[in-house]
Design a protein around this nucleic acid. Structure first.
Length: 554
RNA sequence: GCCCCCGUAGCUCAGCUGGAUAGAGCGACGGACUUCUAAUCCGUUGGUCGCAGGUUCGAGUCCUGCCGGGGGCGCCA
């Protein structure tokens, strides 16, 4: 019996009581009932507070309602006992072995286990990183790469249709400054004070000149543009390569310039115009975002005729909606939180309900410690530690996992020594090790000629307490995926895997899986092997949701 | 001044969208390898959940106010 089956059984029991007139309820029956794993094992395998929740709507007080439900549930196959405790909790204990069938179900489902339909039919755009193509990706971008990609995977697993999108800020005067910086470096002149610094500028200059030996001969105006464009392509390509190395792939690289070239900015403004939220004042074009709670109105076109960054963002949003996305998720750094209010107001000006169509996740700062001291500077970038350096220092798996295991709204500190250490205090190794151990058992079973076959295995043999704990842990994966997706909190997957790794290791400690010495393989061995295979599937799928390898050996 | 985030064990942090006696890892101390990976497991130690009110059967979780830390508030991008 799984949690959802148990939930159904509770609803069924409730319905029976109501139909029989034993219980009166105002309002409808709940569609589902929350069953949770109690912290304290003396509270049974599962507990539900349904009687407390329905107390106000029922003619019975919670303890009496709970007692009636307990009696009704006691006859359900697989349930050993139901106790009423405290103010009206139902503590449910399964028959030993009644959960074993789940192991076979998981093995049969394989990579599909954990997937669900919670977000089925939702078209979601997840935009993250969206860096300027004027330099290497750094620490903050790296957090978004790990979290954005994991979030996308989790939402896909929950049934959503997800597009991962990177908005390339390739327009505006920072691009000109970038081009001028590279050009200056190529000419052997110092980079302008307000330009881009760092060794990478000189590297780019060398590459640009190598690719286009004639470039220095061009007249100044053309030369600056040529440097800007060449360096832009090189830098963008480098970002793409580094993200590829980091296993973060985007479906769409969306150029800000493209918005202009394709007339999407004018189109976006037209849409807003029709909605009646634009006005002109002091020679500028404004959006009246204060209509929807922003603290001030925002300029779209300046007095000098130039369109603002906000105009691009507006057009971009309109374009996303016209491409059919129900939900547009933005992952932004804490330094951009001031932007949230105007984004939401803008969506409202475009005729949407921002609560439905636009979500912003704000990520707090990341610090990195090495040898007990904060690492800030990157030689190459001139400013912050880069993605490339982090991958070299920490490795893709440990880096992705560590960045994804914290809620985004808490600041986090990466301790290089800790997360590269192969020991118990390093969660990524702890979890990967569990998978490697499982794979090892399955390998050994193969050598012994014992197959983890799901047909004909006897689930009721999995009656050891540690087996029950492990099965209940495995049963959680679909709920964890659903909650992570709905709450946009992929870190829950990591925390779940850590907890489940502990549960597995305790099972391993107590339950011998394979025959020893000359022992013949028994049905218990075979049943445990199915459980091991199921556990391996859970780790493989869970790590997959985080984009972290599930190693066969360590 | 206004807005956002954070405050939980000595340290780093969880806390399942309001549940029962608040958890994990590290640290410290003590145990477990002739057997499937000891990168593991078991035990002990450790808390006025920043403070004060409120909501209710029940609050670390929700509301209000305060204290402390971080960040943000351009016709910049």
């Amino acid at each position: 019996m799984t949690p959802s089956e148990l939930s159904d059984a509770v609803v069924h029991a409730l319905r029976a009581l109501v139909e029989r007139g034993a219980v009166e309820l105002t309002g409808d029956l709940p569609a589902s009932v929350v069953v949770e794993r109690p912290r304290n094992s003396s509270h049974g395998d599962y507990a539900t507070n349904v009687a407390l929740q329905l107390g106000k709507r029922s003619n019975l007080k919670p303890p009496a309602l709970a007692a009636a439900l307990a009696e009704e549930l006691a006859g359900v196959a697989g349930i050993a006992s139901v106790d009423v405790a405290g103010p009206g909790f139902l503590n449910i204990t399964f028959d030993a072995g009644a959960q074993g069938g789940l192991a076979g179900t998981i093995v049969a489902a394989g990579p599909a286990y954990g997937r669900n339909e919670t977000l089925a039919g939702r078209r979601v755009n997840v935009e993250f990183i969206s860096a300027n193509p004027t330099g290497p990706l750094h620490l903050g971008h790296t957090r978004w790469a790990a979290v954005g990609d994991a979030l996308s995977r989790v939402m896909e697993a929950a049934g959503a249709e997800v597009t991962r999108e990177f908005y390339v800020n390739d327009r505006g005067n920072q691009m000109d400054k970038f081009g001028a910086s590279v050009e200056a470096a190529a000419q052997g002149r110092p980079v302008p004070e307000d330009g881009y610094h760092g060794d990478y500028i000189a590297d780019l200059a060398r590459q640009v000149v190598a690719n286009r030996p004639d470039i220095l001969e061009l007249p100044e105006g053309e030369r600056l543009v040529a440097f800007r464009e060449e360096a832009y392509q090189l830098q963008l390509t480098e970002q793409q390569q580094h993200l590829e190395t980091f296993r973060t792939r985007f479906d769409v690289w969306f150029s800000e310039r493209g918005l202009y070239d394709d007339g999407k900015v004018e189109h976006g403004l037209k849409v807003l115009q029709e909605k009646g939220h634009l006005f002109e004042s002091e020679g500028a074009l404004w959006m009246r975002t204060t209509d929807f709670g922003d603290d001030k109105d925002r300029v779209l076109r300046r007095g000098n005729g130039e369109l603002t960054y906000f105009a691009s963002d507006t057009a971009y949003y309109v374009d996303k909606r016209e491409r059919g996305f129900d939900t547009c998720i933005y992952l932004l750094g804490a330094d951009h939180h001031g932007y949230v209010g105007r984004l939401r107001s803008m969506a409202a000006c475009a005729g949407d309900d921002p609560d439905q169509t636009l979500e912003v996740l704000i990520g707090q700062m990341v610090k990195i410690l090495r040898g007990g001291e904060e690492v800030r500077l990157s030689k190459r970038a001139g400013t912050l530690v880069t993605l490339e350096e982090l991958v070299d220092l920490i490795g893709v798996d440990a880096l992705r996992y560590t960045l994804a295991r914290y809620p985004t709204d808490s600041p986090l500190t990466l301790d290089v020594e800790q997360i590269t250490r192969a020991s118990n205090d390093n969660p990524v190794f702890y979890v990967q090790y569990a998978h490697a151990r499982l794979a090892s058992i399955l390998r050994n079973a193969g050598d012994l000629g014992i197959a983890a076959s799901t047909d004909g295995f006897d689930p009721s043999l999995l009656a050891h307490p540690r087996e029950g704990e492990l099965l209940r842990a495995l049963a959680e994966l679909p709920r964890v995926v659903a909650a992570s997706a709905q709450l946009r909190e992929p870190h829950r997957v990591a925390r779940y895997l850590e907890e489940t790794a502990g549960t597995f290791h305790r099972f391993y400690d107590a339950c011998r899986v394979l025959p020893q010495g000359d022992e013949e393989a028994t049905d218990l061995h075979r049943a445990r092997l199915v459980l091991v295979d199921a556990t391996r599937v859970v780790f493989a799928n869970g790590l997959g949701l985080l984009g972290v390898d599930a190693p066969e050996r360590m």
